[in-house]
Design a binder for these strands. Structure first.
Length: 556
RNA sequence: AGGGGUAUAGCCAAGCGGUAAGGCAGCUGGUUUUGAUCCAGUCAUUCAGAGGUUCAAAUCCUCUUACCCCUGCCA
């Protein structure tokens, strides 16, 4: 990871610096704790880079821990995809993968300890009753009628819960804290619920499952986490996090710190909403390249480094924020401009016939793979009398601002000769089908000897030698900057978020393209071979991102 | 007066009592066989607002305002 040059600074790193200096901690231990109930998205990448980045920079460790306390919503497939995504992003977790479910025995023991201390009780209030007893934001709650059950009886009841003698939802184990607290999460929060569900890690061993607030802090403590980083909505929960650790017999090292979650314009970043997009078939799965998931960015041609750079640029604070997609695009363009080999592709081909070029001749031109990085070498590109060029790169007539092919005007064919258009053919609808031109034989690698210099450069492929390709052009999924605020997604979906071009022509060297490895199709943007779909008769390319286009901006 | 948080440029974001970093976006020029890249320049007399302390305030104090989060047997 070469981006380690300048370390980011943020309030969490400042806390760690202080903790290290004061001797509160001698080393740093973090963790990334996803629930395996969906795919990781760019918001998770922020957390991953924060946690693993801190571990790297401070020579500490970072665990990967699945927070798997809700078996009904979780799945082993998500465990696998999450591990894959973290590795792909370029991080290695400390030791084996951890699971909160590994600690179910210990957690149970701590629950028993709380009961013995008179700090937890089994409550038979149903969900509706519990809600009533809880009170509201402005009104205090009232004590459960089961709050004063004896320790002995609570122990027996909890044992029944554990032994499967209570029905689903019949009762819960609650902490005895304060039903009048202004922190709602301190109004006797639920620690355990009864759930006869098969768990992807523990099978049918348990029929009671611990809640997040009870599990997370203890899992952190068990693993020796020093700095437990989470998002802002858990700020209130920190009081419960600390309460549990203070009231149980465990060596306490972890402290929770909260940072703001990432919001990105023109997309949604909540698992629930992403799941909705998948289930309603608004996209083609979690890894549809229009999704903001790690898997989707990967499929689209984003590099791990570009995503890491993005998380570095957006920073870590406690301020609510919505980042413009331009920041993300700038990151991937910067990476790919330096590293993606160039190639030529024509998305909307029209024929170009060079009338003074020998009809049966094919030249094998040597073309640079990168305009300024010589180390990327060269490749062979065939040149012949019949080529394809982009339909929008030709006009019969145009003003001086149009720097492409116009009748009686010259342009450079990228990496080849200077040509001058002479005439064109059109179909019955008036669309240009073929452009005729002459070429200047003495312009390969140099400007015309008459001192003129063509004002434009256009890309091309040789007609006979080119390959057929399908090209998928992606754009933002939503038409509004903040789709999450919308009640109905369907009304703000961008109908042009995917444009499939089936008749593209690409240069022959692209037979060797590898999935996910982006090329710059000159003058068009960055594209990579799709890593999933395959067609026998043509290559399938995804557009990662277009080139910056200041001309399009002023033209419109 | 429920509680917990946050306010610095269009969007992110440094700053931590000594006179407003940086990135993205934008705007001006220059180079260029990609309308890309690259290069140079430009872009907050002011930090949500009002008071106060100080030689000195985005930084400290007081009040006000706006926005976000909290009433799952989700995480």
């Amino acid at each position: 990871m070469s981006e380690a040059e300048k370390r980011p600074t943020n309030f969490i790193r400042q806390i760690i610096d202080a903790d290290l200096e004061s001797g509160k901690h001698s080393s740093v231990q973090t963790r990334f704790p996803p629930e395996p109930n969906g795919f990781l998205h760019i918001g998770h990448a922020k957390s991953i880079c924060l946690n693993f980045g801190i571990a790297q920079d401070y020579k500490g460790l970072c665990n990967l821990r699945f927070d798997d306390t809700n078996p009904e919503k979780e799945d082993i497939d998500f465990v696998n995809s999450i591990e894959e995504d973290v590795k792909w992003l370029g991080f290695e977790w400390s030791g084996e993968t951890h699971y909160s479910s590994q600690y179910f025995d210990k957690l149970h023991g701590f629950a028993v300890e709380l009961i013995e201390k008179g700090l937890a009780y089994v409550c038979f209030l149903n969900a509706d009753e519990a809600r009533e007893y809880r009170g509201t934001l402005t009104a205090p709650g009232k004590n459960s009628p089961y709050r004063d059950t004896s320790v002995e009886e609570n122990l027996a009841l909890f044992a029944k819960m554990k032994n499967g003698e209570c029905k689903d939802g019949e009762c819960v184990l609650r902490a005895k804290i304060d039903m009048t607290s202004s922190f709602m999460c301190l109004r006797d929060p639920i620690l355990y619920r009864v759930r006869f569900a098969h768990h992807h890690q523990t099978g049918n061993e348990w029929c009671i499952y611990p809640m997040y607030d009870f599990t997370h802090c203890l899992s952190d403590a068990i693993e020796g986490i020093t700095h437990s980083l989470c998002t802002l909505e858990f700020q209130d929960n920190r009081r419960l996090y600390d309460w549990v650790l203070e009231n149980v017999s465990i060596e306490v090292t972890p402290h929770q710190y909260e940072f703001s979650r990432l919001n990105l314009e023109y997309t949604v970043l909540s698992k629930r909403k992403l799941q909705m997009l998948v289930e309603e078939n608004l996209v083609n799965g979690w890894d549809d390249p229009r999704m903001p998931t790690i898997a989707a960015f990967r499929r689209r041609g984003y590099t791990p480094g570009s995503l890491r750079e993005f998380t570095k640029r957006i920073g870590v604070t406690k301020m609510d924020n919505t980042v413009e997609i331009g920041v993300l695009e700038a990151c991937i363009r910067e990476d790919l401009n330096d590293n993606a080999p160039r190639a030529m592709a024509v998305l909307d081909p029209i024929k170009l016939v060079i009338e003074n070029y020998p009809a049966d001749q094919v030249e094998q031109l040597t073309v640079k793979n990168h305009p300024s990085d010589e180390t990327q070498g060269t490749r062979i590109v065939p040149f012949a009398a019949e080529l394809y060029i982009e339909a929008e790169d030709f006009r019969e007539e145009a003003n001086k601002k149009y720097k492409r092919l116009v009748i009686d005007k010259a342009v450079r064919l990228r990496g080849a000769y200077v040509i001058t258009a002479t005439r064109c053919d059109k179909d019955s609808d008036g669309n240009v089908t073929t452009v005729y031109c002459t070429y200047n034989e003495d312009t390969l690698g140099k400007n015309p000897t008459d001192g003129t210099k063509p004002k434009g450069v256009i890309h091309w492929v040789a007609a006979q030698q080119s390959l057929d390709a399908e090209v998928r052009l992606y754009d933002r999924l939503f038409n509004v900057a903040n789709p999450a605020a919308e009640e109905d997604f369907n009304s703000v979906i961008n109908e042009d978020s995917l444009i499939t071009i089936s008749g593209a022509k690409v240069e022959p060297s692209l037979v060797n393209a590898k999935p996910e490895h982006a090329f710059q199709f000159e003058r068009l943007g960055y594209f990579c071979l799709d890593n999933k779909d395959v067609k026998s008769d043509k290559l399938i390319f995804n557009r990662t991102v277009g080139l910056r286009d200041t001309w399009a901006k002023t033209a419109n």
